[in-house]
């Protein structure tokens, strides 16, 4: 019986390690290819480690297109989107979690249902609307929606957190003469900082990785985001894998760093959202 358990354990670890290897291999392969000479990439069967290591590929990949401009554009969109998301989703979640008002549950239900709405349905009229406002090829269509509630998903997530705080706190503050804004900023927000971090990280990922939005709204080269730039790069350097992989590595690196710093929050946040929706 005991031996069977040990064999089971060994098989489990072999499986887990094998899966980890498969998850990480594509990353390794990307970095490995990004440091090679093209001629070495073409050797068959493939060489596993680059020799010589060519950091020049990065310098070259980053100068053929204005990647620092793309980086800056992406940062502007991310900062605008993430701050709007955090601030307005927290405000709205407060209304749904802590305040009683007529129509609350109906409104919340309607908003939740819109989570199932395919974005394709609203995409075209929204685009036409922004065109009427002459805002095509600007960052407004990508940032402004974040300031209107910041996505149902985030409101839902924060509402779950807010509801775990005892209502007595609000009552006591009201008796002491505090207004709702003060309850929100001085009681609820400080108590739920980790939840705000979760929302911030998720929306960072969302804005950093978004492709369809920038693709639809940004046309001129100088306004491109990193994702769009990478796509443009692919069109220009189709067979130059070492440059394409170097550019991909650069685009991935920031998200990777953010993930490594905040992984605890990520995992908790994901696990929270998947519970009884």
């Amino acid at each position: 019986m005991k031996r069977r358990k040990i064999t089971g354990d060994i098989l489990t670890y072999i499986f887990l390690l094998g899966m980890s290897a498969s998850c990480l291999l594509p990353f390794f392969w990307m970095v490995r290819s990004s440091l090679m000479k093209l001629s070495q990439i073409f050797i068959m069967p493939p060489v596993w480690l680059p020799n010589p290591v060519r950091f020049d590929n990065y310098a070259k990949a980053l100068t053929v297109l204005p990647f620092n401009q793309y980086f800056l554009n992406t940062v502007i969109i991310v900062v605008g989107g993430v701050s709007g998301t955090i601030i307005t989703s927290a405000i709205c979640a407060f209304a749904f979690a802590r305040l009683r008002w007529p129509g609350r549950d109906f409104v919340f239900g309607a908003i939740l249902t819109s989570m199932m709405l395919p974005y394709a349905v609203t995409l075209i009229p929204t685009f036409i609307g922004w065109r009427l406002l002459n805002a095509i090829d600007s960052f407004y269509p990508l940032i402004v929606p974040a300031w209107f509630g910041g996505g149902v998903f985030n409101i839902f997530l924060l509402r779950q957190f807010y509801r775990t705080i005892p209502m007595d706190l609000d009552e006591a503050a009201l008796i002491d003469g505090a207004g709702y804004m003060r309850i929100f900023t001085q009681i609820i927000m400080p108590l739920t900082r980790p939840a705000m971090v979760v929302v911030g990280l998720f929306s960072f990922m969302y804005y950093w990785n978004d492709f369809l939005g920038p693709l639809v709204y940004l046309n001129s080269d100088k306004n491109f985001t990193l994702s769009l730039g990478l796509q443009l790069f692919r069109g220009m350097y189709n067979a130059q894998w070492e440059l394409m992989m170097a550019a991909s590595t650069v685009v991935i690196a920031p998200v990777l760093i953010v993930f490594l710093l905040g992984q605890k929050y990520f995992i908790e946040g994901i696990a929270m959202t998947g519970m009884k929706g």
Binding site: T88, F94, L99, W147, V152, I155
Partner: peptide, 8 residues
């Protein structure tokens, strides 16, 4: 309540 929910 309505004011706080206004953005969304």
């Amino acid at each position: 309540g309505w004011l706080f929910a206004m953005p969304v």
